[in-house]
């Protein structure tokens, strides 16, 4: 055995094993438990029905249910709304506040605050703004002749209302990542372009954007993974309603498990969602590894 392999083994034994054991116990085990549940008829509302093995029945129910697909579509709709807005706004704001002008560093810092606020608080403050009859938002929109908009009380607007809250909290994320990437670009090509007289749009389109692209892709993946899990803000604002207008995957699982107490069905839906998100995560990791390889060169 080579000397380095030997050393690897010692480091692994002492340093790595504890984390792996802990993560297995706290993450893999509950997931396997969910898998086990998903094959059972585990219905807390009907305690007298034995919790028997039902094969793929729960999966069959989930995959044929309209509500599940509606939740899936709603999740992706919300993802599309928030990601596109966050991308455009985030990059735009980053370009604006990355200029070397006094005060811009402070603006960049202040804009980071929303990200570090608990999603529940974000939900609550937007609830405060949207609140039917009383909310400030409609009052101010009224001043400029808009509205009143039934933000969270109409099926038409509720998803938008949630999207706005999420956009408010996470546009800074794209802004921050983009600003960091902008800073790491070397200034010389920009000076060359200024001497050559390339228009600003051309410089952005052909010099900046291509260099930002890998970073933007990574950031969007991270946002997509988070958007797929979105729960807290919806729980606070609409609890999935009105009707099922804002019922995303997480809320669907929540409702199956804790409103109808059908743990087996909830677990089956959970597993389907784990598989979907695994795809997203795998794609993201591929992108990250590409980035690492590119940087190593």
């Amino acid at each position: 055995m080579s000397h380095t392999a030997n050393r690897d083994r010692r480091i692994a034994a002492v340093f790595l094993i504890p984390a792996i054991v802990v993560l297995f116990a706290t993450t893999i085990y509950p997931m396997l438990y969910a898998l086990w549940l998903s094959f059972r008829n585990y219905d807390l509302a009907k305690p007298f029905i034995p919790r028997i093995f039902v094969g793929l029945a729960n999966y069959a129910e989930v995959l044929t249910s309209k509500a599940f697909f509606h939740a899936l579509i709603t999740t992706f709709k919300l993802m599309a709304m928030t990601l596109s807005a966050q991308l455009v706004l985030g990059v735009g704001i980053a370009l604006l506040v990355s200029q070397k002008l006094p005060g811009m560093a402070l603006a960049r810092t202040l804009l980071l605050i929303p990200m570090m606020i608990s999603p529940v608080i974000v939900g609550l403050v937007w609830l405060f703004l949207y609140f039917p009859e009383l909310g400030y938002l409609n009052y101010f929109l009224g001043l400029v002749g808009i509205g009143p908009v039934p933000w969270i009380s109409s099926t038409q607007w509720a998803l938008t209302a949630i999207a706005i809250g999420d956009i408010w909290q996470w546009t800074p994320f794209i802004m921050m990542g983009t600003a960091a990437a902008l800073q790491s670009l070397s200034p010389e090509p920009y000076e060359a372009a200024r001497i050559d007289g390339n228009s600003r749009w051309d410089v952005f389109r052909y010099v900046t954007l291509p260099q930002l692209k890998p970073v933007l892709v990574s950031l969007l993946f991270l946002r997509a993974i988070d958007a797929f899990k979105i729960y807290d803000i919806i729980f606070v604002l609409t609890k999935g309603g009105p009707a099922d207008a804002t019922e995303v995957i997480s809320l669907y699982i929540y409702r199956q498990s804790f409103t109808f107490w059908r743990m087996g069905v909830g677990a089956a839906a959970s597993f389907v969602s784990l598989i979907i998100i695994s795809v997203l995560i795998t794609l993201f990791f591929k992108q990250m590894q590409r980035g690492q390889a590119a940087r190593a060169r």
């Binding site: 070397s186 010389e188 090509p189 001497i195 050559d196 007289g197 051309d202 052909y206 291509p210 260099q211």
Partner: peptide, 25 residues
Amino acid sequence: AMVFQNYALYPHMTVRQNMEFALKP
């Protein structure tokens, strides 16, 4: 026209594209 110490080539463009971009304006 200026030649920079670190050359300031656009890293994501080919040699030809670098020259084309300089001529674009």
